[in-house]
Design a protein around this nucleic acid. Structure first.
Length: 267
DNA sequence: CCCCAGGTAGGCT
DNA sequence: AGCCTACATGGG
């Protein structure tokens, strides 16, 4: 067991980072959180300082993105209006560096779905198809997902997304994500949207959370509500383009702070 | 009972 | 190109 100790900081809040909707495989414990990522796990203890007890400290140091200067970004996007409010509310959020394949399947499941249900479906997916890591299950490999079949995905409650998961799993057998990672953002988005069941919004979530492209602005129902006054009758995909033009390389951060703010505060 | 959720594909104009 | 609707499931 390895340990990461994170000093108290204005710009890292584990609770907000986990609960802001970018990640689904975690659960509260008496002392903090139990977290699962790909084929790793961490026990997070909250206190004067955050302690991350894990199986691989290098993996989680990268995963939590401790090297990005969030304080700088937060200062760059201040607008003395909605964004400033959202940053004040969610200023401890880091954008996690998640596994690309895990985000592909996780965000296909997320579409038109509630977060508690998304968590449940992914948990059953891992329990049923993931490798036994001794005490927990890894996120399933593409091979395991491709072998499962549409009926299996339906049986764990995936609903109409079962067909998407099955077809994408089989298509991904022939793909190398490390090659996809070399593409620029528009080309990579095009690749992702070529997957059955992946539209602009899911593609942008995968770009942001799985490939850490910050020049994307996923527009879901909450973001759409947040901007419907500013952009009346603008479809989600078009709104995403406009917001990306507005926030540039900080789009992903602004989006995540706003999503968390709108969803938690219900304003 | 209805409405909603980190939307998308397919069909229509 | 844009607009419309069905889609599985469960929580509020």
């Amino acid at each position: 067991m390895e340990k990461i100790v994170v000093p108290k900081s204005q710009t890292f809040d584990v609770t907000a980072t986990l609960e802001c909707g970018q990640v689904f495989r975690f659960a509260p414990t008496e002392e903090g959180f139990k977290l699962y990522a790909l084929n790793h796990t961490a026990d997070i203890k909250l206190g004067e300082q955050v302690e991350i007890l894990c199986d691989d400290a290098e993996f989680f140091k990268r995963y939590f993105d401790f090297d990005t200067d969030y304080d700088f970004i937060q200062r760059q996007v201040q607008d003395n209006a909605l964004v400033s409010q959202a940053v004040e509310f969610g200023k401890g959020i880091h954008i996690l560096r998640q596994d690309p394949t895990e985000t592909v399947f996780s965000f296909i499941i997320s579409q038109n779905n509630h977060i508690p249900r998304i968590k449940g479906i992914i948990e059953r997916l891992c329990d049923g198809l993931g490798e036994d890591m001794g005490g927990y299950r890894a996120f399933p490999t593409v091979e395991a997902l491709a072998a499962a079949g549409e009926d299996y995905f339906a049986s764990i409650g995936a609903g109409y997304r079962a067909a998407y998961l099955d077809r994408v799993a089989k298509a991904m057998l022939d793909e190398d994500m490390s090659e996809w990672a070399k593409l620029d953002t528009p080309s990579l988005r095009q690749k992702l949207m070529g997957l059955y069941g992946v539209g602009r919004k899911v593609a942008d979530c995968i770009l942001l959370f799985g490939f850490n492209r910050f020049d994307v602005f996923p527009v879901d129902t909450w973001i759409k509500k947040a901007f419907e006054a500013e952009y009346p009758n603008v479809p989600a995909d078009k709104m995403s383009v406009l917001l990306t033009q507005k926030y540039g390389k900080y789009s992903g951060f602004v989006q995540q702070w706003l999503f968390y703010f709108k969803r938690e505060k219900k304003v």
